[in-house]
Each structure stands twice: as structure tokens, then as C-alpha cells.
């Protein structure tokens, strides 16, 4: 992909890199400084949050991650409910979003005529452009009441005693509401990536399948999707990363109660939400440091997820460029 000729030409025209034009040397240096600033900024973020979180890490050790009690007044700081809430809401969101996104992507690439595909694609892009806080606003006043009265109450009444995930009173503000709003927010993202990799499936692969007597669906499901799978997984994981770090919308609908409940209808709490809610009011150095440690954990989880996704996407890109 890189043009070896490019470097070669440069090298020939600018006799030697070390002794080249003085202006160009200065230019290269300036560019390099800009380039260096990004890793430096990243390091600085890690360092700054790490330093602030250090007192809490020293004070609580691993118990911070495994502790289930969060009671700042009693100086009890166990972050497990938040980690649980973040992971569960995001994974649920991915479970809702992935099939829908892949369905949309298939519809747009394989089925819809162009006059229909273009506006739908634009509409989903629009969905991605809506600010998180507006999703939250809509969640509070529209989604949560609807979930509560049309979904949760009947389900809880009929199945609550038998199926644990439906048990308990229907609060509306719940893990379920959080997962649904997150899924709406990551759908445009996953479907865009899926659409891109599906479009990149070579036409001859599709034609080979059709020519062998595959139906359109068989062609898509057995040939196009497997071909695009690594990219789709990469997109899904990137979407998961988004969901894990999402703050405003989920804070506004998840109910913000630090419990670990089996029921989807019970309120939950995420790492991002506790930061948004309590950081400004945190009194005492240890409380603040505990919140900093939560920020550090959230940072760590999303970084790991993103690195993983990025490596996958890059591998796909490399394969595509072969």
C-alpha cells in the first residue's frame, strides 16, 4: 500500500536525509513534534489519573474490585457493582445491537435498491450524530415509561416468579433501559463497519456462490458474511468499547443504584455513571481517590477492548490490501 517508489524518489531528490535542505530538516522536526505529542498526551492521561488513584489503590488493594459495598459515608468502597453494571449493560446492548446492525447492513448492501439504501444509510448516520445527552432526555421521558408499562409490568406479572431476569417490581429506570439506550447508540457504529466490510467482499465470491445454485440468502450467509466476519467482529468490539464508556444517556436511565441484581428490571449503576454523579460532590481525599481508581479501571477496560478491536480491524485491512 505504501509506495516504495515514493520513499525512493524522495531519497533520490533530497540527496541525503541527514544533510537535506535546512528548511526541510526544520519541517521534519516540527512534524515529528506534532506526532510525538499524541503518545505524550496519552502517557500523561495515564500518569495523571494513575497518580490520583494511587492512594485508593494503596488503601484497598484488590478488595476494591471485589468489594460489593459502596458507602462513602462509612468509607466503604467496593467497585464491583459498577463494574458489573458497566459490563452487563454493555454486553446486553451488544447482544441487541449486533443482530439488528448486521440485518441492516445486509439489507442495505444486498437487498435495497439505491434509492432506498441511500436515505436509510443517511438516517443511521444521523442516529450516530445525536448527542448522548439527547438520547438520555428521550430515554427519561419516552423510553423508560414505555418499557415500564408495556414491557416490564406484564412480563414481571406473568413470568416474574419463574424467570429471575424478569422478577421484581418494574421500575422503568433499570438495567434493561440502560442496555436498550446503549444498543440504539452503538447500532449506527456497528452497522457502518459491517456495511463497509460487506461491500468489500469481492463480487466474484458472490457470483461463485450464486452460480453454484445458492439462493441470495445462502450466498450472503455462507459466503459474504464469513468473508467479512473478522471485520464485523472488530466493529462489534469497537461498539462494545463505545458502550462501556458511554456516560450521559445511561446515567439518565439506568437508575443509579449500586446493587448486583439478577433482574433486568432492577436499577443498576455503571462506572461512568458513578463518576458523573458523585465526582463533583466527593468529599475527602480517599473518596475522590476511589473515584479516580474507578476512572482508571474504566480507562483500562476500554483501552484493552479498543486495542483488541483495533488489532482485528488492522489485520482485516491488511488482508484486504494484499
Amino acid at each position: 500500500m505504501a509506495n516504495p517508489a515514493d520513499g525512493g524518489l524522495m531519497a533520490r531528490l533530497l540527496p541525503s536525509r541527514s544533510k537535506g535542505n535546512v528548511q526541510d530538516q526544520f519541517y521534519r522536526l516540527a512534524l515529528l513534534l506534532f506526532g510525538v505529542s499524541i503518545p505524550l498526551l496519552f502517557l500523561f492521561i495515564v500518569l495523571r489519573i494513575g497518580t490520583e488513584a494511587w492512594p485508593a489503590m494503596e488503601a484497598f488493594g484488590w478488595g476494591f474490585i471485589t468489594g460489593t459495598e459502596w458507602n462513602p459515608v462509612l468509607r466503604e468502597f467496593g467497585a464491583l457493582p459498577f463494574i458489573f453494571g458497566t459490563v452487563v449493560s454493555s454486553v446486553l446492548a451488544l447482544m441487541i445491537a449486533l443482530p439488528l446492525s448486521v440485518g441492516l447492513a445486509i439489507f442495505l448492501t444486498e437487498l435495497a435498491p439505491r434509492w432506498l439504501a441511500a436515505p436509510i444509510a443517511f438516517a443511521t448516520e444521523l442516529l450516530a450524530a445525536i448527542p448522548s445527552v439527547v438520547y438520555g432526555l428521550w430515554g427519561i421521558f419516552v423510553l423508560v415509561p414505555w418499557l415500564r408499562f408495556t414491557i416490564q409490568e406484564p412480563l414481571s406479572r406473568h413470568f416474574g416468579d419463574v424467570i429471575p431476569i424478569f422478577e421484581g417490581p418494574a421500575y422503568g429506570f433499570s438495567m434493561m433501559a440502560g442496555a436498550v439506550i446503549l444498543s440504539i447508540m452503538i447500532i449506527p457504529f456497528i452497522s457502518a463497519v459491517t456495511r463497509e466490510v460487506l461491500t468489500a467482499v469481492p463480487r466474484d465470491q458472490r457470483e461463485a456462490a450464486l452460480a453454484l445454485g445458492a439462493t441470495r440468502w445462502e450466498m450472503t450467509w455462507q459466503v459474504a458474511l464469513p468473508y467479512a466476519l473478522p471485520g464485523i467482529i472488530g466493529g462489534a468490539i469497537l461498539g462494545l468499547g463505545r458502550a462501556l464508556g458511554e456516560t450521559m444517556a445511561i446515567t439518565m436511565v439506568i437508575g443509579n443504584r449500586p446493587d448486583i441484581a439478577a433482574s433486568l428490571f432492577a436499577p443498576g449503576y455503571t462506572m461512568a455513571s458513578v463518576l458523573a454523579n458523585e465526582f463533583a460532590e466527593a468529599t475527602g481525599a480517599l473518596y475522590l481517590s476511589a473515584l479516580m481508581e474507578i476512572a482508571l479501571i474504566l480507562f483500562g477496560i476500554t483501552i484493552v477492548v479498543n486495542i483488541f478491536a483495533q488489532l482485528l480491524v488492522w489485520r482485516v485491512a491488511k488482508r484486504g490490501g494484499r
Binding site: 489519573i49 468499547g241 464508556g245 456516560t247 461512568a272 476512572a295 476500554t302 479498543n306
Partner: peptide, 15 residues
């Protein structure tokens, strides 16, 4: 840069 794109915005605020 790609990884930084994935940093949760609340973490950026706290940083």
C-alpha cells in the same frame, strides 16, 4: 490515536 478515540469522554473530563 485510534485507541485514544475510544477513551470514554467522562475519563477525559476527569483527566
Amino acid at each position: 490515536a485510534d485507541v485514544m478515540n475510544g477513551i470514554p469522554s467522562i475519563v477525559t473530563g476527569i483527566f
